[in-house]
């Protein structure tokens, strides 16, 4: 769901200009596509006078339960008063096109996504980690990252109770084979 300002239907415009598979829902203003088609989309959003998405308000990523990554863009057109959310599926190579060539605001947001998710942006002028040190070897917001592998540092994903349960289970599993002997 997306808070929509001026309810506009871009279905015709997209079907006319986007020559690849995509899903578009005018009610929620969400466009879903594969990330390799982003170059055509960026050009359309930035250059088309009817869209004129001049303000990239947010860029982030998310990991799906099945392990694939999505990059999520939120555009608004200050000129025409409409919004669009784009969810782009990241390919196996973990590299998508940078939006910095059209929107300068993507610069820091893409660095953040690289820092947190390890998704590379092709054509980014300065892709370095922004929050963490350059030597860090993990990407914190990936679901596979649970905690620093140091004893006593609390698990990030679960509550205390879940942790205690897991520990009890592990202790039991250790004991049982010993009992069999």
């Amino acid at each position: 769901m997306n808070h929509v300002l001026d309810q506009k239907d871009f279905s015709g415009l997209f079907s006319e200009n986007l020559k690849f598979d995509y899903e578009y829902d005018p009610a929620s203003q969400i466009l879903r596509l594969d990330a390799e088609h982003l170059p055509e989309l960026f050009a359309l959003l930035a250059m088309d006078e009817r869209l004129a998405m001049d303000y990239l308000r947010d860029l982030t990523a998310k990991e799906q339960p099945e392990g694939e990554f999505h990059v999520v863009y939120n555009w608004v057109s200050i000129e025409h008063h409409h919004t669009l959310m784009v969810v782009a599926k990241v390919p196996e190579s973990m590299e998508v096109l940078s939006a910095t060539q059209y929107w300068e605001s993507a610069n820091w947001m893409e660095r953040e996504v690289w820092d947190m998710f390890g998704i590379r942006f092709a054509g980014h002028p300065d892709l370095r980690r922004i929050y963490l040190e350059e030597t860090v070897s993990f990407f914190p917001l990936r679901k596979s990252f649970r905690t620093l592998p140091v004893e006593n540092v609390r698990d990030l994903g679960g509550s205390e109770r879940e942790l205690a349960k897991a520990r009890a289970k592990a202790a039991k599993a250790e004991k049982e084979p010993a009992g069999d002997k």
């Binding site: 963490l132 040190e133 350059e134 030597t135 860090v136 070897s137 592998p149 140091v150 006593n152």
Partner: peptide, 15 residues
Amino acid sequence: PEAAVEIEAARLMGI
């Protein structure tokens, strides 16, 4: 004694 844990964690963060 807990300092050793923190120093190790900081090392993993590159500090």
